[in-house]
């Protein structure tokens, strides 16, 4: 195995994903990671296609779109630097649930999902760190999705600062 790219090591160890990990664990993940670049407008992966990489976005904006019959692509979320993309590469069968598009030039670290999965299985210490960060990320995403679901700015729910005293 070649000498790890020092930039990749730096990028990974300072990312929110690996922040605080012992160096030995970062160094185990580096060999299965690589830097990737996507120009603005390019597709990172398509809905229903198989993708084997877990992405850690370093910079740029990624749009996640889902295809809805008769509505076309609906953008459900955008992701930016520090956020994880394509959990299904690690947790599922690699079939993507949405299409990811680079809305700006995107720089990311791609981690080989099946090799990371193997690593987690054989090295519970690594597995714990990886899965904790993944769970945190999922938890944040779930909370954000719930907030979206609440439709807080809808006109039919109480609002802040229209101050409707005795308004009927």
């Amino acid at each position: 195995m070649s000498v790890p790219d020092p930039l990749l090591v730096e990028e990974l160890s300072t990312s929110p994903f690996a922040a605080g990990w012992p160096h030995r664990i970062v160094s185990e993940v580096v060999p299965i990671s690589r830097q990737v670049l996507y120009p603005a407008g390019s597709i990172i992966f398509e809905q229903n296609a198989v993708n084997r990489d877990l992405f850690l976005i370093c910079s740029g904006l990624v749009g996640l779109d889902m295809r809805v019959p008769a509505r076309g692509n609906v953008r459900i979320l955008t992701l930016a630097g520090g956020e994880l993309l394509a959990w299904s590469a690690l947790l599922g069968d690699g079939q993507m649930t949405a299409t990811a598009t680079a809305l700006e030039p995107v720089r990311a670290i791609a981690i080989d999902g099946s090799r990371l999965s193997d690593l987690c299985q054989h090295r519970p210490d690594i597995g714990f760190h990886v899965m904790t960060r993944l769970a945190e990320s999922l938890s944040h995403r779930l909370t954000a999705t719930r907030l979206q679901l609440l439709d807080l700015y809808s006109h039919t729910t109480p609002h802040v600062l229209t101050f409707g005293a005795r308004e009927h």
Partner: peptide, 29 residues
């Protein structure tokens, strides 16, 4: 961006959180 406004805050670099003032106005949730 698509997503809720706290996510924008999550993504921001806060170089000096102790010296940061936050003013918030919107629905209570």
């Amino acid at each position: 961006n698509v997503g809720v406004v706290p996510q924008l805050l999550d993504r921001m670099a806060l170089p000096a959180p102790q010296e940061t003032v936050l003013l918030v106005c919107g629905p209570e949730v």
